[in-house]
Design a protein around this nucleic acid. Structure first.
Lengths: 325, 325
DNA sequence: TTGAAAGCGCTAACAC
DNA sequence: GTGTTAGCGCTTTCAA
């Protein structure tokens, strides 16, 4: 690929003039411009972005760090992020951590290496300190770094409340909720806290089952669900994420438990996949496009040195009425 | 962030020595090494990858161009590609084209701008010439560029045959297949060609419905399916991709058509999502991890200037027995 | 309005 | 073994 110098030579001007013509910065006479354009044409010249980035010390690339792309929530989130970043002239580098903190660490270090201009992270298997020691732009989905890093999250407290209200209204007496790890107090876990509180306030028995979900396969979910469903046979209500919820529904069908008559299910996220079961799932919906847009706008604000208007953006959730509760 | 020069000064050595220590290239005395390590430690030095890449004229980034990340096949494919690239020290830049050829073109140009070292493309809305005029590494999923660009594909002919065999064995007399655009003769479309041939050979009526699917929402699929199902009421067999197949199944349930008694359905791809319907879908499975690995290995071979052992890698497909046919 | 030149941080060639 | 230096291709002073 030809360089700017070759273009300059061919057009009989200096490299500075070519650069100015290319970037529309500074004066270039119409005559020079014409010769330059022609030279570019003839040489099929294309500016080397690497050199440009090097000079500017930026790449126009944002890292999106998520646990697992092969999951309806994160693939949708990543898609929406990519679309919005693209609109603003940025590119998306995608990083599956599948729960491996090494991977998370390595992607984080790309910030220091100037490989990415910023990171949007929805994966949190590292200590907070690993993030807080960075001064480069980071935005967090669903993990609270104490106001030092912009937080974008759904109103998970309300999410837990909505789920609880549905199951309470249905008269459940013994409910079980399947959660990821709740060791870390993170906004996404608030739903389980609120859910538990509300259930207990109404004298309903709540069982919370935690599992570390890093790779999500139906097979694994199915087995896990079966195990607990067989253990707690008197359960009449379930609250969990979309995918395990679907497994519960399948389990119920397989073993002849009527949904919603004998068993009510409320799921969380309400991705498209909840529309294809029979009956459709009753679910608490997160507004993924909104979350994605907020992440993008916050990271761009940080990059451009603008103040982030709101360091804690919490988005509303809503109830999707299906046939399982 | 400190530069290599500052490290050199602090360690009382030249920048060359630091560089050699950093890269393990050339000789560095134990003494110098120690002082350098200490200086790096104190300065929190981290090599600027941008400068390094600039010098080497590479980024270690591969562009993955797909129609839509929010689709089970492509999100799984992209995930598998990312994992394999990561294993080989490469990063993944993801690009949703959602059928917009401008986007495809722009990502393609990143090759010329040296922003990516290579491109794996599963999206083909541009003319072949746009691809063939490039000399940089490109690998294609499911589009045949005539042997000039490595092709990775499933054995879609066999896929079409497997689907046909199932519906024939079930005694279907009037089948319909929903396809994307079949204007372009591309391996993925072979399944519909083979399917049609086999059906006709056995005197079965085949209807082929084409639609341009760029963004995939169940809502859209559902409406499209309903339209055609109502138009062709005597259809007793359906062959289409996973998502529209699920919509057909839902439609059938909604309108009381018994599956598989009155209506048989065979879907294509056999992603996890086909496991959660009731009954599970009978489907032709593509081996996505294999496809992804092959794409990665081919692109890396191209980048490293090694010969690509096989310019047309076709992977076997298999039948997943479900309850819909 | 323009060309020459400095320099972004790094690597590698080449003297010492 | 090690320091010096010349670029990599581009942008941006700065003097003309």
């Amino acid at each position: 690929m030809a360089s700017i110098r070759e273009v300059a030579q061919k057009a009989h001007v200096g490299v500075g003039t070519v650069s100015r013509a290319l970037n529309g910065s500074g004066y270039v006479s119409a005559d020079a411009k014409k010769r330059i354009d022609q030279a570019i044409e003839e040489l099929h010249y294309m500016p080397n972005e690497l050199a440009r980035n090097f000079y500017r010390n930026r790449t126009g690339i944002i890292g999106v760090v998520i646990p697992n792309l092969d999951h309806p929530f994160f693939s949708k989130f990543t898609m929406e992020v990519e679309m919005e970043l693209y609109r603003h002239g940025y590119k998306t580098l995608v990083c599956n951590t599948i729960g491996i903190s090494n991977r998370e660490q390595e992607y984080l270090e790309m910030l220091d290496r100037s490989m990415v201009d910023g990171i949007i992270t929805g994966s949190h298997s590292l200590d907070d300190s690993s993030y807080l020691s960075h001064d480069k732009p980071i935005v967090s989905l669903d993990h609270d770094f104490g106001g030092k890093i912009p937080l974008i999250s759904s109103d998970h407290k309300k999410g837990g409340r909505l789920a609880a209200e549905v199951l309470l209204a249905d008269g459940c007496k013994h409910v079980i909720q399947f959660a990821g790890s709740t060791k870390v107090r993170t906004p996404a876990n608030d739903r389980h806290v609120t859910f538990t509180q509300m259930m207990q306030e109404h004298g309903v028995q709540v069982q919370t089952v935690e599992s570390a979900w890093n790779r999500f396969t139906f097979d694994y979910f199915q087995k896990t669900m079966e195990k607990f469903m067989k253990k707690y046979t008197n359960v009449d209500g379930i609250f969990t994420a979309d995918l395990p919820a679907i497994c519960c529904l399948n389990y119920a069908k397989k073993y002849g438990r009527k949904v919603p008559e004998d068993l009510k299910i409320v799921s969380y996220d309400a991705m498209e996949i909840t529309q294809i079961t029979d009956p459709c799932l009753t679910a608490v919906r997160q507004d993924v496009p909104q979350l994605a847009k907020a992440c993008v706008h916050s990271i761009l604000a940080l990059i451009e040195g603008k103040p982030v208007k709101n360091m804690r953006q919490i988005f509303d959730v809503s109830l999707q009425r299906g046939g399982t509760a």
